[in-house]
Design a protein around this nucleic acid. Structure first.
Length: 386
DNA sequence: TCTGGGGTCCTAGGACCC
DNA sequence: TCTGGGGTCCTAGGACCC
């Protein structure tokens, strides 16, 4: 009776990851640094753009990325700049230049879109690409994508093509830099299972630690556990997901567009403080910046939140949901200070903070604000209809 | 010599309404 | 007298990712 379901073509998903992206962009501008250990990051780029000896760096900040030569000394992203300095004092340090990275990001994404338009943005330096409907053999297609990225930016990337996003993401790490990896379901046992469990996107430090305590170290270890066991230790949803992931199962689509959910600004003080004469103007400035950002993009938001990080690294947040969404600095500031006063009554903090931030969530496009949202929820719709 | 900044998603409890 | 369950909104915290 019913028609036979038409089998969907097997999916072909690529993950493309730019190689040491920020560092490579910097090397385009400073080719004389090629072959040297270079770290990018640290604090604000206020003191000029040129490379300085890492040995002279002082203060807070982390390595955002570094060249492969610096990695050979044990330096990696997320590491404190001062620790990197101790490991590799002969390295050069460069400040971040996001405008330049964004420019190259747009260039490489545009080059890929010429060949395969179904792209999911995963940040400044990586994308998923749905190649299912691109009629070309995978290896040639992969090489063509890499050549297009290189021609557009002068930069190399690593690509994996696999049956789904999960495997493509793991695969793009397997042959870095300048790699091309093709993965098939048949490769699961031989290629994927020997890898550490934390190589799965979604297993972070906490989950990995917990897995290790259960003697689960590799993806293969994970695959051999019964789902019931994983669900008992990690909850129904995450436990089931762990089991599926270890077996290479992932049905997530490549999402080519999504609306932003929040915008935020935060900053770390050079010295920890509980002084409101220091904190207040910084928070005010952050509110201005987030307002500018929302206006530039044409969004308004209803939930205004502040975030504090104490000197002991504990984070507290306080939210304030307004009746109507806003994007002007004064309204954001009012709501942010009201939220802050709930953590610091009479301007008194229980201990010094190292970071303060402001976030605007529950966003709407300006001019697309549901008029009855706030009032309607309170049963006040009647008078709005007059 | 400690540990940046910008996001997303999930969970869980309480308020409130039907 | 005590008795419901479901749904949505809001808040706070936490894990994770780039």
């Amino acid at each position: 009776m019913a028609d036979e379901p038409v089998a969907a073509p097997p999916r072909r998903i690529a993950h493309l990851d730019m190689d040491a992206f920020y560092a490579s962009v910097e090397l385009l501008r400073y080719p004389e640094l090629r072959g040297q250990p270079v770290v990018i990051g640290g604090r604000r780029a206020s003191e000029g753009r040129e490379a300085r000896p890492l040995a002279e760096y002082v203060g807070r900040g982390v390595v955002t990325t570094c060249t492969y030569e610096a990695r050979a000394f044990g330096v990696h992203s997320g590491m404190a700049m001062m620790k990197a300095r101790a490991l590799c004092p002969q390295a050069l340090a460069l400040p971040l230049d996001f405008d330049e990275y964004r420019r190259h990001s747009r260039l490489f994404k545009a080059a890929v879109a010429e060949i395969a338009p179904e792209i999911e943005d995963r940040g400044i330096d990586e994308i998923y690409i749905d190649l299912t409907h691109v009629p070309e053999e995978s290896r040639l297609l992969g090489l063509r994508l890499k050549a297009a990225v290189k021609a557009a930016t002068g930069l190399t990337c690593s690509i994996a093509i696999a049956p789904n996003k999960l495997l493509a993401k793991i695969g793009s790490e397997l042959d870095k830099p300048d790699g091309l990896t093709l993965l098939f379901m048949e490769d699961l046992e031989s290629v994927i299972w020997p890898l550490p469990a934390k190589r799965i996107n979604g297993i972070g430090p906490k989950a990995n630690e917990k897995l290790a305590k259960l003697n689960i170290v590799t993806i293969g270890d994970l695959a051999r556990e019964r789902p019931e066991f994983l669900m008992r230790h990690f909850g129904k949803s995450y436990g089931q997901w762990l089991h599926d992931a270890a077996h290479g199962r992932d049905e997530r689509e490549v999402v080519t567009y999504s609306e932003p959910k929040s915008r935020s600004r935060e900053t770390t003080f050079e010295d920890d403080t509980r002084d409101f004469d220091v904190i207040a103007p910084v928070l005010t400035q952050l509110c201005r910046q987030v307002a500018e950002d929302l206006k530039k993009r044409g969004y308004v938001g209803r939930t205004i939140g502040v975030k504090l990080r104490y000197d002991n690294f504990r984070i507290v947040t306080r939210d304030n949901t307004l009746e109507a969404p806003v994007n002007d600095a004064r309204a954001i500031r009012r709501a942010a200070f009201a939220a802050l006063s709930r953590v610091a009554p009479q301007g008194r903090l229980v201990r010094p903070i190292r970071l303060i931030g402001v976030r605007v969530g529950t966003l709407f496009r300006e001019g697309d604000v549901p008029a009855l949202q706030a009032a309607g929820a309170r049963g006040e719709t009647a008078d709005l209809f007059g």
